[in-house]
Design a protein around this nucleic acid. Structure first.
Lengths: 158, 158
DNA sequence: GACGGGGTACTCGGATAGAGCTTGTCCGAGTTAGCGTGG
DNA sequence: CCACGCTAACTCGGACAAGCTCTATCCGAGTACCCCGTC
């Protein structure tokens, strides 16, 4: 059970995008060069963010990606879901159906108590992710590293 | 990011084992037949539980697996960790090290604010798992399906 | 000098290979129970 | 009848393949800009 590495890249890229003017688009190549990441693969992740409505993409010269909405309205949950998909990590395969007393008509994803317990844990995880926004991270980074915004903006636009 | 399917099997198998006498060992084949699972593969998962000290294993005739300690002392976290390993799903690869101002001496798994945010979410997940024991599930199953204990015990011992 | 059209360079986007993990299977080492034999 | 040793069957345990997801890459479709020619 390991998370897609693109989640980390996407999170950092979104935070970095908060520091560039909203009317400037940043190319995938430039975002990738920032952390020496494979450009084509990062592009793939950014495409997923665009499909999810988190980023907007523009083709051609002066094209690239930009945030589709304000950082306060982008949660970590949004980004994780965009990259990883909406399915839970724990998938109830309803093995109770094959056991003694198993009823084919019952939806064991809702009835099975093991599934419910795992679901509660996953819900706690999602709740924590949904409670944090890109703006929160941006603010804490600015507090800890005051030079980061300007340095990042320069590196991404020049 | 999908969890090993063996986690589901292990959870159900542990709950089922709570209903057989502590001095009776149940073979992997019998536990697998209960839900029509591939026996050899379930055996693999049970081995992991044994290595983690959750089950004890016995070889030879009359051998098999049994719970190593009381269900109250076995949390869902124990089982998930035994199967999935101790690593977090989100792995900070410390990409900040490659970025501008990156310092090779800094441990970014502790410093990176993105990593911290993801860590908090994962901690909430683990906390929820650690707060639930096999005994809790056993109790709620018994409340919902009073016939389950006897039926399971019979099926696993005869 | 101003305007329009074509070419060109640049960007995203999806289709296409390769690596690593999950899933599934198999046979061997070790152990216990049962049986046969001898006292 | 009882004790002992041997055999044989049974179980776990780890080593060995197949499928699938994640990782990585490449080239084509689309677009905005820029240059050139014309009015």
């Amino acid at each position: 059970m390991k998370m897609n590495e693109g989640v980390e890249w996407a999170l950092h890229s979104c935070v970095n995008l908060t520091w560039v003017d909203g009317d400037r688009a940043v190319t995938a190549a430039r975002l990738a060069a920032f952390y020496e990441l494979p450009a084509a693969y990062l592009n793939k992740q950014l495409q997923a963010l665009a499909r999810a409505g988190i980023l907007t993409s523009t083709s051609g010269p002066k094209g690239g990606f930009r945030l589709a909405r304000s950082p306060e309205r982008i949660t970590l949950m949004d980004i994780v879901t965009a990259i990883e998909g909406p399915e839970d990590a724990f998938r109830c395969t309803e093995i109770l159906r094959k056991g003694p007393g198993g009823d084919p008509a019952v939806d064991y994803r809702a009835q099975c108590l093991v599934s419910q317990a795992m679901g509660r844990a996953e819900l706690a995880w999602r709740r924590e992710l949904a409670g944090q926004t890109i703006a929160d991270i941006k603010a804490s980074v600015e507090a800890a590293y005051p030079e980061a915004p300007e340095r990042t903006r320069k590196r991404l636009t020049e």
